[in-house]
């Protein structure tokens, strides 16, 4: 017996729908607990968070911008947006993916330890990726790299065999193209 037939066949769970990745910007009033509200909403309703960043963007207006990268079917993504919009301290919700090909950047700090050829190779690759050396001893480097998520993923992948020790990533900051704001 297939699940669709007897489960409460939520179109939200619709297996026929393709899973998409969306980047959503949420402008919120910077009151205490607002991030907990957003995260609690995702946890409570079982939505995915692939990446989440938050910082104040206007001190005077007391506004913060939350950038969430999430995955789900089109129906789920629509639900996520309406649920976010329903939170009392939310000014606005914009689906940057629907607006079209947003600019997305992430920063990562990557620590690599090693000697000899491996060390030389890591530095050479870092240059090719325009990563900066922000800390070094004769035994290690810390690289700072900025770019699309995929670029950072690739860089980290390359560092693995060269003595990767640890990584710290910021999560995605994103903005739409063109002159208009959200």
């Amino acid at each position: 017996m297939n699940k669709m037939e007897w489960g409460p066949a939520m179109p939200l769970d619709n297996p026929q729908q393709r899973v998409e990745r969306h980047t959503i910007s949420v402008l919120v009033d910077n009151e205490p607990g607002v991030l907990a509200r957003v995260i609690g909403l995702f946890a409570g309703r079982g939505y995915n968070i692939d990446s989440l960043t938050v910082t104040e963007v206007s001190r005077e207006a007391g506004a913060s911008r939350i950038t969430i990268v999430t995955t789900g079917s089109v129906d789920i993504i629509d639900q996520i947006k309406s649920q976010l919009g329903r939170l009392v301290p939310v000014h606005g919700v914009t689906d940057l993916t629907v607006k079209g090909d947003p600019i997305e950047r992430e920063l990562a700090l990557v620590k690599v330890a090693g000697k000899g050829d491996k060390r030389v190779e890591s530095l050479r690759l870092a240059e090719a990726f325009r990563a900066k050396v922000v800390d070094a001893t004769v035994d290690h480097f810390v690289f700072e790299i900025t770019g699309k998520v995929s670029k950072i993923d690739t860089f980290i992948g390359l560092m693995k065999p060269l003595g990767l020790v640890e990584i710290a990533r910021t999560g995605v900051a994103a903005i739409s193209r063109g002159p208009e704001g959200m």
Partner: peptide, 11 residues
Amino acid sequence: IDPSSISKTVR
């Protein structure tokens, strides 16, 4: 009045 109630379970 609640947009999140619309097309939540039934389109």
